[in-house]
């Protein structure tokens, strides 16, 4: 179950670390003050990233391995930039070039990465639970950069940071998440993050793309987008994978656009100053219309990318504090 809010979320209990976890594998199970601490820490990097010299030396001499077993451009780039700006030596491993293709098991790969003495490993994998499997086998902190349909914690954190900056308090906001929730790790992590921080979350999508037992997740479930939108402060659209558009889950992209596409007209149903978000890459004209995506009054889509780097810098910093013997983190 998602954690219940206890007391003021800005205060964490005294006598322990502000973030007492070895890895960041998911948002599920994090306390509200832990999430808010990560967001608070990220803010300093937002400012640094706006300067012309974007270098910090906190992770000087540390090695960060980005092990990506699933294709990714933006998340990999974001993690690479984050690691480099923090001063770490960043190495990228792509599955397509790795021994995975030669039949090596995931555990063997994990043991190999571990033997290279990384100080942090960032992992993306196409199978739910794969990142946890590796985390159990290595001695350094592991950051989940997305595992199957399970979790994508840094995406939820960057979304929360974006909302915070544009809307202030997250608590009390109504956030509508629309799209392929069934296959979306972004949706799951966001549901945990936003409900933990006290937002009212609505989930909307075609019945064929909504997972079972959503009523157990402290969210309101809709299959009619027009009914989900009124009163929404934030509208978060999910990417629809191309392979699911051809009759297996939905009949066609144009039917999906008709029922669930975020058009200008639909956006008018939400609150006047509603924020529009999308984790990217977008299918323009399918789940979101270009004039909505590009409307800077509403759209926070490029800001999400910007916040991504800052959030990942903060995560790398915080998770390596123990090994760097930062005072108070031993």
């Amino acid at each position: 179950m998602t954690s219940q809010q206890t007391g003021s979320p800005h205060q964490f209990p005294t006598g322990s670390d502000a973030f007492p976890h070895r890895h960041l594998l998911g948002i599920a199970g994090l306390q509200p003050w832990e999430i808010l601490f990560l967001l608070e820490e990220a803010k300093q990097w937002v400012d640094l990233n706006k300067k012309s010299s974007k270098h910090a030396d906190k992770l000087d001499g540390l090695t960060v391995i980005n092990a990506f077993f699933e294709n990714s451009t933006r998340t990999l780039l974001s993690f690479e930039i984050a690691g480099k700006r923090m001063g770490a030596d960043v190495v990228n491993m792509h599955a397509a070039q790795s021994s995975i293709k030669k039949g090596e098991t995931l555990i063997d790969t994990a043991v190999t990465l571990n033997a290279m003495k990384a100080d942090a490993i960032v992992i993306r994998h196409g199978s739910s639970g794969a990142v946890q499997l590796i985390a159990d086998k290595v001695d350094c902190p592991v950051l989940n950069a997305g595992d199957g349909s399970h979790e994508h914690p840094t995406q939820a954190l960057l979304d929360a940071l974006t909302i915070q900056r544009r809307k202030g308090e997250i608590s009390g906001l109504t956030v509508t998440i629309c799209g392929d929730v069934m296959h979306s790790r972004v949706a799951r992590s966001n549901i945990y993050c936003l409900t933990t921080l006290g937002a009212k979350v609505r989930v909307c999508g075609p019945p064929s793309l909504l997972p079972a037992a959503l009523d157990r997740f402290n969210v309101e479930v809709f299959t009619n987008f027009d009914q989900a939108l009124p009163g929404s402060d934030v509208v978060m659209m999910l990417r629809l994978q191309n392979e699911r558009m051809n009759g297996d889950f939905i009949p066609s992209p144009r039917e999906y656009h008709y029922l669930y596409g975020l058009t200008r007209e639909r956006l008018m149903l939400a609150n006047k100053d509603a924020l529009v978000m999308h984790p990217g890459p977008m299918n323009r004209g399918v789940e979101i219309d270009s004039d909505v995506a590009d409307d800077l009054q509403h759209s926070a889509i490029t800001e999400q990318v910007e916040m991504g780097v800052a959030v990942r810098m903060a995560c790398l910093d915080i998770l390596t504090r123990k090994s760097r013997s930062v005072e108070g983190w031993s």
Binding site: A28, S128, G129, D147, G148, S149, H150, E151, R185, R188, P211, A212, A213, L214, R216, F217
Partner: peptide, 15 residues
């Protein structure tokens, strides 16, 4: 099997 556990874990499940 379809249910809260499978949805939390993000596993493909069936009725």
């Amino acid at each position: 099997t379809n249910g809260e556990t499978a949805t939390r874990l993000g596993l493909a499940s069936a009725t």
